[in-house]
Design a protein around this nucleic acid. Structure first.
Lengths: 336, 336
DNA sequence: CTGTTAGCGCGTTCAA
DNA sequence: TTGAACGCGCTAACAG
């Protein structure tokens, strides 16, 4: 008995038809005598029967799977704590609802290879995109001809099969800027990665609004690929040409922490001489010295919520809510 | 034409049988005329045909999927950078080989619910376990009655269907201790989480060996759940009762960084007054102040390698190598 | 080189 | 309350 028993095997063992067994498994109450039911359940347990999903799926014409795609140019596509939280939230919800989560990282060069995406068979897809605007758009179009509901994290796209799931970057950026203004800051340097990023754009816009309302200035410092080195180079350059601002507003925690390190190396006191804030708090932000003032959205909840909306859309054939904005909260620290 | 076309649809459009189309798709060369082949390929392209995996799987009696299970007590089961690297490595390899990766986090309480695991249908399983020894063992047994090859990350288990994939914690711990001894350190405090952890045990053992060879001392400080707070409490307690050692050897980077913060708060100079080392370098270790001396294993490679061995085992029915040990390298920094 | 047959495991439909 | 037949989409084996 090395091979998995089937419905028929169980049925044979009980002297009934496979249909009866099927009825028992799918809980069709009142369709089967409580006498036979018990016998069948016993046999199922004894034989170690487990339903064959492939058969089920083929029959039902649905995969009971959700695809999670992460478009990133490095193979280590799970490096970002924001991403992993979203994935965990979605995965747990999916599991809980009897769906499986298929995780796939995509390099941008594989864009041109339709098979890669075609290989993914799921009832719905959730995606986190990075890279240039063009690249992302091209990906979205490819994903859409899979003809299943598509949830985009931190990205807007107008299409009946698409739902945008975002955090309130704009509002949070306003909160941070207000906080800094409250501390007396007027002149800001905004640390941003190069390239067009909707989320970063929203953050800059939010900060700028507050800045203009209070008659301050805001200058964007492009930090390339936002790596430790690139950020420090950019900040060092701006210090050389423009001196220190009242505060550095980080487009994310990474750039903020790189800046903190640079300032520490130069014996520039934070927050006394200059303030620093981050964005998208991950756990290690509390390990920074000094600990980072930053904004935290509930990325895990974002994943879970994606699952909720996705299952809904799978059921209904379309999204009920197609533009969801989740709140972001300030995290206090000593850096500002 | 809102429904996916099938092989038969393509065949009909070309005036051939579905078998012929199947032959073309599966590249059975010489089995089909180059004339019809071209016609068929054109039709496939035009109709947007994509194979139905459920049917394929049912037919082939294999899922072409690998399950990645993470046993963790918190819902955010992807918080550990080591874990995410392993997952990324495995996922990329799987994708590349035409397998899909099914990701599932498991809470320990769900141990008692066989359905959860039974729901996972894959040709092989890769697992990262946390929790008590008993819990882990119970999980392994459950996983084993899925009757598919099982790769355990950082955990040993003797069974024909199990492969242990580990990093050389023992050797790396020796390297770190030697490094510290070279700097003149003799008395060590080892920061370890409470509970039995094979990997941590190996690290402590390695450090202790060097320590004894050089006539030094090593005391283990139990840091509870290794959280920021718990670690700082434990270290503070040990300072109160025993004073400072020559060096703190961190069982991982997290505990090392928490200790760094504590020392900084107390104005204890690192590495002048006391040295600190970590383990399992993640990217943010370079953000610590001072940057951490730690050990780094190639977790991504561990994931990839797991994929290689897994596919082999799926093919062969058993693992070729069932106990793999990957090297670990020292990462230099200013903390020791 | 191409067509026919049959069956993977399950569940819907209809009949008993 | 239970059984028989059929087909989901695909491919191995064999026939033509």
């Amino acid at each position: 008995m090395s091979v998995q028993p089937t419905l028929k095997d169980v049925a044979k063992a009980c002297g009934v038809t496979s249909m009866t067994v099927s009825n028992v498994l799918n809980g069709r109450e009142g369709e089967v005598g409580s006498e036979t039911r018990k016998r069948i359940l016993a046999a199922i347990d004894e034989l170690g029967y487990r339903p064959n999903f492939a058969a089920k799926r083929l029959r039902a014409q649905r995969t009971s799977a959700i695809g999670m795609l992460i478009l990133d140019d490095v193979p280590e596509f799970l490096n970002d704590p924001f991403t992993t939280q979203v994935v965990a939230g979605l995965s747990n919800f999916a599991t809980q609802q009897g769906y499986s989560l298929i995780l796939q990282g995509l390099r941008s060069e594989s864009q041109t290879t339709p098979p890669i995406l075609g290989h993914l068979q799921a009832d719905g897809i959730c995606a986190i995109l990075s890279g240039s605007r063009d690249l992302r758009r091209k990906f979205i179009e490819r994903a859409l001809d899979l003809r299943v509901p598509l949830i985009l994290i931190q990205e807007e796209f107008d299409h009946p099969l698409v739902c945008s799931m975002r955090q309130d970057d704009h509002g949070a950026a306003r909160q941070i800027a207000k906080y800094l203004v409250g501390k007396g800051a007027k002149h800001f340097h905004y640390l941003a990665p190069s390239g067009h990023w909707p989320a970063i754009g929203a953050r800059i816009a939010g900060s700028r609004e507050i800045c203009e309302e209070t008659g301050g200035t805001l200058k964007v410092i492009e930090c390339g690929d936002e790596s430790f080195e690139a950020t420090q180079r950019a900040v060092a350059g701006s210090i050389a040409s423009d001196g220190l601002p009242d505060a550095y507003i980080g487009g994310n925690d990474r750039m903020a922490m790189a800046t903190l390190r640079l300032l520490d190396d130069r014996n520039i006191a934070v927050p006394d001489q200059v303030r620093v804030t981050g964005f998208n708090a991950f756990d290690f932000a509390s390990f920074a010295t000094p600990s980072l003032v930053t904004a935290k959205s509930d990325a895990y909840e974002m994943g879970r919520r994606s699952g909720v909306e996705m299952l809904n859309a799978i059921e209904l054939g379309a999204f009920e809510n197609d533009n969801i904005l989740l709140p972001v909260n300030l995290v206090s620290g000593n850096s500002a």
